[in-house]
Simulated assay, not measured.
Amino acid sequence: MSDQFIKTITKNKNFRAYALNGTNLVREAALTHETSRIAAVVLGRGLLATALTAQSVLKGEERMSIQINGRGPIGNVVVEGDAKGSVRGYVTNPQLETVLDDKGQLDVSQAVGTNGFLQITKFAPYANPYIGQSQLISGEIGDDFTYYLAQSEQIPSVVGVSVYMNADDTVEVAGGFLVQALPDATDEAIDELEVALKNMKPLSQMLVDGYTPLEILETIFGKDEVDILQVAGVGLAAEPSKAAYRKMLTTLPATEVQAMIDEDNGAEVVGKFSGKRYFFTADELRDVILEINANNAE
């Protein structure tokens, strides 16, 4: 079941605003990767921020890949997303032990680290990839996407993402919002937005209280102050099938595939984004080698 995403514009045409409830996709990702409590929050925030950003900067068949490396104990945070609402991701250390701040709360910043960069690579059909990068400013992920959009995309934005965990380390709720200033936004309008964001109820509390994506945005701009442009689903990208992985194997040199037979009498492929495992027997690999040789002979 996909989660709900909405795209809106304020009635005064000052801002575009996006919001989503991503509880199901974050919960599924956490279960798939068997994440610890802190890793579920980090991965979840990365998935949510990427889903929001993808909807705001991509169109058509475009897609994007983000990588956060703050040199913290969580390792790399890698997420892919497209303009159609599909995302998938992983963290290098999904079983990282809980990291707490001096108030006893999960310390996402310490887990991610701040001595590094957020890099976003955008892919478009028939075009060279575009790579943008900005320094991490907090390691909290939402703030770092906010800074990236302002610095690399030249779009004044605010990104807020939250993952709220149950006592048993499962995901209770997850969601987020993204607000972008349009060219006609006045300084006064931007100042009012900053005040509204400062005074609003914490995002995590709104999610726990059952706020819909629209209600989150109405908390920021006021009831009936936004026009909905689109309502769509978002969810985890489908896992490649065994047949798709076999096709990837046919792009390797035949000698490499033969080495898999000689050394391991087969091969196991593990999807980084899903953790799913597919085993290819020696006979299956021999068929792959036959196909590689036939392709090379053409």
Rank of each mutant, 00 (worst) to 15 (best):
N199R: 06
N199W: 05
S204W: 07
Q205G: 10
D209R: 00
G210R: 01
T212H: 06
P213D: 00
E215D: 08
E215N: 03
E215T: 03
I216L: 09
L217F: 12
E218Y: 03
T219P: 10
I220D: 10
K223Y: 11
K223D: 14
D224L: 04
E225N: 12
V226W: 11
V226M: 01
V231R: 08
A232T: 13
A232S: 15
G233C: 01
A237S: 13
S241G: 03
A243F: 11
A243C: 05
A244L: 10
Y245D: 03
K247I: 08
M248S: 13
M248A: 15
T250Y: 07
T251P: 04
T255L: 10
T255V: 14
V257R: 01
D262K: 05
E263S: 06
D264V: 08
A267V: 10
A267I: 07
A267W: 03
E268A: 14
V269D: 02
V269K: 07
K272N: 14
K272P: 13
F273Y: 15
F279W: 11
F280K: 02
D283K: 09
L285C: 10
L285Q: 00
V288I: 14
I289E: 07
I289L: 09
L290D: 14
I292N: 07
I292D: 01
I292T: 04
I292H: 06
I292S: 00
N293Q: 14
N293E: 15
N293M: 13
